Amino acid sequence: MKFVAAILSLVAGSAIAATDPVEVLVCVEALCPSCEGFVTDYLIPTASIPGMKDIMKVTYVPFGNAKIDLDAKTVTCQHGDTECFANSYEQCAIDIYPDQDDFLPFVGCVAAIPTQFKMSQDSSFEACAESAGLDFGVIKTCHDDPDRAWDLQVSNSELTPADHEYTPWIVVDGELYDNSSHDLQKAVCDAYAAKGGDGGDACKTAMVM
């Protein structure tokens, strides 16, 4: 019986692994209250559910409603230069630490910081890097390098859908997520089920379609 159970467990695990994870595009901006709320109340708790990292791949894009001028090499952020400053810190952290297990704790920490402490204060981002186990020195070096920081602003602008209408703009496997649903777990589990996947533990508490 133990042998049969082990085989069934292996097959179930293989079935889960054979399904591509759900792509979750998260377009935000650092000083947007609605973005902060989504990140702290829904994104981070959902990503923290056991097994969720196996079925959900997050692409986190801190650019939002900013406007970029490629000729003049300027970026104008919705909430001013301080937001560009903060966006750049997040862009650098994600570029250096692309694994969502690394960058999500950092951006989750940044989202939880009161706005006045994110305004051009390196210390707030240093504290979040330390709490996430990231090397703040290399993140700051990136942030303070005008060429690298500019390249990241460009790449993040390109990752932000041109037709987005607001922030946070969340796309789950190609479908716009309804922010009013307040249930990112269900959206991910529904999308995973639609692909033929079994979400396992990650979806046991979700009301899948």
Rank of each mutant, 00 (worst) to 15 (best):
G108S: 01
D102R: 08
F85T: 01
T76Q: 14
D71H: 07
M119F: 05
D54R: 12
I49L: 13
V28M: 10
M119T: 11
T40A: 11
L31T: 04
V110D: 07
D99P: 06
A127G: 10
A93D: 10
S34F: 15
K67Y: 11
P62S: 08
G64T: 03
G80K: 02
A129F: 05
G80Q: 04
D122W: 07
I113D: 11
Q78H: 15
F38N: 02
K57T: 14
D69Q: 08
Q121M: 12
I49H: 04
A111I: 00
F106H: 05
K118Y: 06
A47Q: 03
M56Q: 03
K57S: 11
P50L: 09
T82L: 09
T82A: 14
D95C: 10
L43W: 00
V61N: 12
E126Q: 14
E130F: 10
S123M: 14
Y60C: 07
G64P: 05
S131F: 08
G80S: 09
K67S: 14
F117G: 01
T40W: 00
I94D: 01
Q100Y: 03
H79D: 05
A86F: 03
D69E: 04
D69N: 15
P62D: 05
V39R: 00
K53P: 00
N87M: 11
E29T: 03
D71M: 09
G133V: 11
A66W: 04
V26Y: 00
S120V: 15
G108A: 00
Q91E: 13
A86N: 06
C35M: 04
P33H: 05
C32M: 06
N65M: 13
K67F: 11
G37W: 01
V28T: 10
V58I: 15
Y60S: 08
L70W: 08
P98R: 09
A132Y: 06
F38W: 00
I96H: 07
T40E: 01
M56N: 04
S123W: 09
I113S: 05
T46M: 04
I94C: 08
F38K: 00
D69P: 01
C27R: 03
K57D: 10
A93Q: 04
F85I: 01
A93V: 09
M52G: 07
Q91S: 14
P114Q: 06
K53F: 07
D54K: 11
T76H: 12
V61M: 03
A47T: 02
S124A: 15
E126W: 14
D122F: 12
L104P: 00
K118W: 08
A93T: 08
C27K: 02
V61L: 08
K118S: 08
K118A: 10
F63A: 10
C128M: 11
Q91F: 06
Q78W: 05
A66P: 02
D71L: 12
F125T: 08
F117Y: 15
L70R: 09
E29I: 07
K73Q: 13
C77E: 07
M56H: 02
C128P: 02
G133C: 09
M52Q: 12
D122S: 12
F106P: 01
S88K: 10
K118C: 08
P45K: 03
D71S: 14
G80W: 11
D71Y: 05
Y60N: 06
M56Y: 01
K118H: 09
T59N: 12
